[in-house]
Every structure is written in C-alpha cells, then in structure tokens.
Write a protein that binds this DNA or RNA. Structure first.
Length: 566
RNA sequence: GCGCACGUAGCUCAGCUGGAUAGAGUGUCGGCCUCCGGAGCCGAAGGCCACAGGUUCGAAUCCUGUCGUGCGCACCA
C-alpha cells in the first residue's frame, strides 16, 4: 500500500512539475510515506511537502495544496486527500481498497508478506563462529538468534541467503585444548598429568575425557606423539555440542567453514602474497606487517609472525577474500561487540585486495547480562564460570529465549531476566503474542464447531459489514506487515517484527474485549459473522507468519496454566 | 590516554532514518468476566529524551563539547 500511495504522490508531483508549479525533482527522490499514529490523520500520510519546502521555496502548505490539486482524477481507491498540520498530506482509503487488502492477506496465507521468489541479492550471514574450545554461553545465544533471525528476515524479503559458521580450528588455542584433554585423559587412566598452565578448566572436558577413553581405550601416550588425536577429538566433540545447542534454538547452517581448509588450500599464503604484490606489506623485526593504517586503521597489523606462522588475522583476510570470491553481493558478519576494534582491519584488507569494502557489513551484538532473582549473574570466561546457553534454553524454552533476544536492538546491551523468560504469565511478552494467536484460533475453532463456514473469499456484503473503527485499524495493521518485513530486513533489525506483533495482537485483544458484550465475532448476523471471521483469519495469518519468521511457535491453543486455578 | 557503541517514565525498552500532543511493557493506584480463552481489557499517575551549545520552518533523532556506562586498544583467537 505504501508504494501505491507513494506512486500516486509521485504522479501528482510530476504533473505539478510539468505545469511549472514545482521545480524538477531529483531522479532518485523517494516519496516518504508513513502510517500516522493517530487515526484522525488518515490511513496513510506523507510529509513530502515539508521535505520539498526548501528546494521549491514555497511554504509546505502551499506545496501540499499543489500536490492535492494535481492528483490524478481516476484514483477513486482513495476517498480523501487533505492537507493538515504544518503541511502533511493525509490520505484515506476507500472501503473497497481496504477489503481488497484483507483478501490479499488471506489469499497469501502462509506466505503473505514474505517474498514468493528468492531472486534478490545473494547474502552470506556468518554468525556465532565461537571457538570450539567450550560450550556456548548466553552471549553466544544472543548472537546466534540475532544472526539467524536476520538471515530469516532477508530470506523473507527475497534475498538469497546462506548461513555460515566459521570454525577456528587452527592455532594456539587448539593446541591448548588438545593438551588439556590429553592431561584429563591421562589422569583419568591412572597416569596423572597436570593441566597445562592456562589450560581449559571447564568441567565439560572431564566428560569429553571419559568419552575419549570409552572410544579409544586407555591410551597412555604423550601429547608430543599423539597430540592431533586429542585435538581432533576435543574439537569434534565440542562442535557436536555446539551444533546441538544451536539446533535447540532451531538454528542450522548451510555451511560449516573450517579455518584449516584455508591453510590447506594455500589461500592464506595467497592472500598474503596478494598484499605483498600490492606493496602494502613491510617487514618489521622479522615479521610481515600489513599497513592497514593506509586504510584508516589505528595501527598496522602483523600477518606473519617472526617464526613464519601466519596470524589469525591473515587467515581472516583469506576468509573474507574467499567470501567475496564466492560471489556474494553482501557478507554480513555478526560479531560480539567486543570485536568492534577488528572492523577497520578487515575492511582494510578487502580494500587492499581490490574489493568493495561496502559489501561487508558487520552487525555488532552487545552483551547480555543475565538476571536471576533480581540479581546480575557474574560471568567470566577466564575462570570458566559462565552461564551455559543450554541451561538457559532448557529452563526457559526456545520460544522465550528467541523472542526475548529479538525484542532488543542488537546495539543496545540487554538484560535477560530468567524469571521473566520462564514465567508463563503476562509479564512474558512471548506469551502475550502466543496467547493472542491461540485466542484467535479459538474463535475460528468455535465457528467451525458451530458449522459456520468462512469462505476463502468473503462476500462483498460481508466485508461491508466491517464498519467498526477498530476493524478498519486492524486491517490497516495487517496491510503494514509486508512493509515491516522489508524495512526490518533492510535495517537488519528483527526487533521490528517482534514489536509489530506485539502492537498488532494488542490491537486485537483490545478490540475483542471491547466488543465481546455487544458486537461479537460470531453472532446471529451472518454477514457480520462472515466479515469478522475473515478479519480474524487475516489476523491469525499475519501473527502466525510473523512468529514463524522469528521461529517462535504459534500455538493453536495454550497449555493450561497453573496460574488460572485459585 | 585513544577508538567504537550507548544515556528516553521507578525498572526493562521502542521511537518508522529530521515531522503532527515523546510511546509500550512492567511496577503503583482505580475499574471491567450471565465465559468466541480475564494468560485479557479500560483508566489514572509517572518525562528538562544525561547536560550545554550549534545546524533549520521543525531535533529524542544530525554536528561539536562535557559528564556517565559498557567494550576494545597482541607477533591471542
């Protein structure tokens, strides 16, 4: 609908320009259209006149008048266009226009608001990519849900999306992990071996050690001889654990990308060579240093150590080069906010290699602080003390964890209150939306039980029975959904979907309660009943689609809660 | 010290990319079930949008500075 109004205004503007009443517009001028908060301001509004005031050297109200005068005569799908306030253009849709919108919702069904074809730009979303040295914690969970939801959002908006996890399976930490497991195993089989200094302390390795013995028997060997065996075992078992945790959050990947393959295929060397050829690498005390300061970084960065081993950064250069070479139009990296200082050097490497650095987007996800019983749970990775993701998901459920993570913008820090997430009451937003969906379904069930058919396309007379202002507003809200999806996708902001769902279901709850004594959905009036059931079915469609997009269940009925008994 | 974020109701947070009277949830107070789900709804109270300047018809939103919070500043990943 927004496009339609936008086009209308554009037509009018062009006619006004032709008539010499307004100066020419820039080609790429996008007509701003918004849905007014206040229903008195119409169904759709535009502030074009205000934005053009300067270039046109006319008052906003005068411009608005000109636009209204030049509106095409044949636009009877709109009943009124008026100038209001400081120069707003307010439009009101004809009833038939609105009814057609509702038909469109129901026709679209499970795909309403979502792209039917994914022929848009190719996007790679890389997220989580936690080092396989231990289980995921709550902070990873937020990044996981955020990245996954952004990917879903892009998918719904018609992009060609792939999800990827980058496995840091190379380097010191892998050695350390292997050594830690080795020590545990040796100690377990009666060959006491101290954990290396700075080794991994977590309890999970104890379990891994037991698994190791179960599989390989009592293998008394030195790490120097059989180190790789321990490294691989530890890494694989932790990765399995990570995969399981993610699967519990309904997250799966198209690609698991091991860093190791970049080294094996010489791509790391190759990337360094490219930079050398471009003459932006110099030697310093035996190490190779990439002059990232040429591209705005604070400091130059080492890519090859004195001992000849490439740094993590070198591999990451190769990795991002590889992403570009795979032909993605956009690569989105979802990172913890603590990695923000890393952005300039990665962008620098893309630029230095001749790629368009704007193809890389970094989505920073701020930290989560976990609250239990009104108190923050202290977390620190160093001490091995952190709240594991699996315990929180187990406690609160994937629905609540996903929805609550998705209710916050990525760039603001989040308090995650376990008590709220666990509660099956109104203070938990996810239940509010799910309850609304269940309530809607319950009405449809009731109608069915009474033998009332809701035609796939309600009759015109039935639609015309939808005369209450709340009904009009509800239909308008439903027509916004496709736009919300698109906007959220472009902004990479899943929280917009969550808020939209809250707002829309609230409007329904309000409507429902207000009229349940007078104008019920199912009544003796067959036309009103048919129209309202169509509306309710439209609401069900949109709420289900929105929840589905966030991978949150849309239950047709809620489990009986213990709080209802007295 | 330098850099990147963020300061909005008691608390947790939105605010449609510069527009109409700054919103919601929660908490507090007061109302609403002869049942299509009260896990809901309605109302009241609650704000110097951290502070000070600037940009303009117009600023919570953009710019500068100050203060505060978080996070970074490795030949670790």
């Amino acid at each position: 609908m927004r496009e339609r109004v936008g086009q209308l205004v554009r037509q009018s503007l062009e006619r006004a320009v032709e008539a010499g009443e307004l100066p020419p517009l820039p080609d790429d001028y996008a007509v701003p259209i918004e849905k007014p908060r206040n229903p008195e301001h119409g169904d759709s509004a535009s502030n074009v006149a205000m934005t053009l005031a300067r270039v046109a050297r006319k008052s906003p109200r005068d411009i608005a008048d000109i636009i209204v005068r030049h509106l095409p005569e044949d636009c009877d799908w709109i009943t009124g266009a008026e100038v209001a306030g400081p120069g707003f253009l307010n439009f009101r849709f004809a009833d038939d226009t609105l009814f057609n919108c509702l038909h469109a919702v129901r026709d679209g069904g499970a795909s309403y608001g979502h792209a039917e074809k994914n022929d848009g730009p190719r996007v790679l979303v890389e997220f989580v990519s936690a080092n396989p040295t231990g289980p995921l914690h709550v902070g990873h969970g937020r990044g996981a849900v955020m990245g996954d939801a952004v990917a879903s959002l892009l998918d719904a908006a018609g992009y060609q999306v792939e999800r990827e996890y980058y496995i840091n399976d190379v380097g010191n930490q892998m050695q350390m992990l292997g050594r830690s497991l080795h020590a545990r195993v040796q100690t377990l089989i009666g060959n006491p071996t101290p954990l290396p200094e700075d080794g991994y302390q977590g309890d999970y390795l104890q379990k891994t050690a037991e698994d190791f013995v179960a599989q390989h028997g009592e293998l008394k060997v030195t790490f120097e001889d059989e180190g790789q065996l321990f490294i691989d075992f530890a890494k694989d078992s932790i990765l399995e654990d990570i995969k399981a945790d993610l699967a519990n959050l309904r997250i799966t990947y198209d690609t698991w990308f091991p860093e190791r393959t970049l080294h094996a295929s010489q791509k790391v060397e190759g990337a360094v060579k490219h930079l050398q050829d471009a003459d932006i690498i110099y030697e310093r005390e035996g190490a190779l240093v990439f002059r990232t300061t040429d591209f705005g970084d604070d400091d130059d960065r080492v890519v090859v150590r004195t001992d000849g081993r490439p740094t993590y950064f070198a591999a990451d250069i190769a990795y991002h080069k590889d992403k570009m070479d795979r032909g993605f139009d956009t690569a989105i990296d979802v990172w913890g906010a603590d990695h923000h200082g890393y952005i300039p050097r990665v962008r620098a490497s893309l630029q230095a290699l001749g790629y368009d650095a704007d193809k890389l987007e970094v989505l920073l996800v701020q930290f989560v602080s976990l609250v239990r019983d009104g108190e923050q749970v202290k977390m620190s990775t160093r001490s091995g003390k952190f709240e594991e993701l699996k315990s929180v998901v187990g406690e609160c459920g994937a629905d609540a964890v996903r929805f609550l993570f998705l209710m916050r913008r990525a760039d603001s820090q989040q308090e995650f209150d376990v008590e709220v997430a666990k509660s099956q009451t109104m203070e938990n937003p996810v239940y509010y939306v799910q309850y609304g969906h269940a309530r809607v379904c319950s009405i449809l069930r009731k109608a069915q039980a009474e033998g009332i058919e809701v035609p796939e396309k309600a009759r015109d007379e039935a639609m015309q029975a939808l005369t209450l202002p709340e009904e009009r507003q509800l239909i308008l809200a439903l027509t916004e959904y496709p736009y919300i999806v698109r906007r959220a996708a472009e902004a990479r902001e899943p929280h917009q979907i969550a808020f939209y769902l809250m707002d829309t279901i609230k409007a329904f709850h309000s409507y429902y309660t207000r009229y349940k004594g007078s104008e019920r959905v199912i009544s003796d009036d067959p036309l009103k009943t048919e129209g309202r059931l169509a509306l309710v079915d439209g609401i069900r469609t949109v709420i289900a689609n929105g929840l589905g997009l966030l991978k949150v269940h849309a239950p047709e009925r809620m489990a009986q809660s213990e709080t209802t008994s007295e």
